[in-house]
Amino acid sequence: NNDALSPAIRRLLAEHNLDASAIKGTGVGGRLTREDVEKWLAKA
């Protein structure tokens, strides 16, 4: 759900042209964290 994304995470996803639904969030309530996105980028 994009409503649950912080502005910083939205920007990070946009910079790398990523789809938030492709990344499993580990934050509160399954929210994406910066670490989630960075780990996903490291694997890609």
Rank of each mutant, 00 (worst) to 15 (best):
N1K: 06
N1T: 12
N1Y: 07
N1Q: 13
N2K: 11
N2W: 05
D3I: 10
D3S: 10
L5S: 03
L5F: 06
L5Y: 06
S6K: 04
S6D: 15
S6L: 07
S6Y: 04
P7R: 09
A8T: 09
I9W: 06
I9H: 03
R10A: 10
R10H: 10
R11P: 04
R11V: 14
R11S: 11
R11W: 14
R11Y: 13
L12V: 05
L12K: 03
L13I: 06
L13P: 00
L13H: 00
L13D: 00
A14W: 11
H16I: 04
H16M: 09
H16A: 06
H16F: 09
H16E: 01
H16L: 11
N17H: 11
N17V: 04
L18P: 01
L18N: 01
D19F: 05
D19N: 10
A20G: 08
A20D: 05
S21L: 09
S21F: 08
A22R: 09
I23M: 08
I23T: 01
I23E: 01
I23N: 00
I23W: 05
K24T: 14
K24Y: 07
T26D: 02
T26A: 04
T26P: 02
T26H: 04
T26Y: 02
G27A: 04
G27K: 01
G27F: 03
V28D: 11
G29M: 06
G29V: 02
G29D: 14
G30Q: 04
G30K: 03
G30M: 03
G30L: 02
R31W: 06
R31L: 11
R31F: 07
R31K: 13
R31A: 15
R31T: 14
L32K: 01
L32Q: 02
L32A: 04
L32M: 05
T33Y: 00
T33I: 04
R34S: 08
R34V: 15
R34G: 05
R34P: 08
R34Q: 14
E35A: 11
E35T: 08
D36T: 00
D36M: 02
V37M: 03
E38G: 05
E38T: 07
K39F: 12
W40C: 02
W40F: 15
W40R: 05
W40Y: 15
L41I: 14
L41P: 00
L41V: 10
L41S: 02
L41W: 06
L41F: 06
A42G: 07
A42P: 04
K43A: 14
K43E: 15
K43T: 14
K43S: 14
A44G: 09
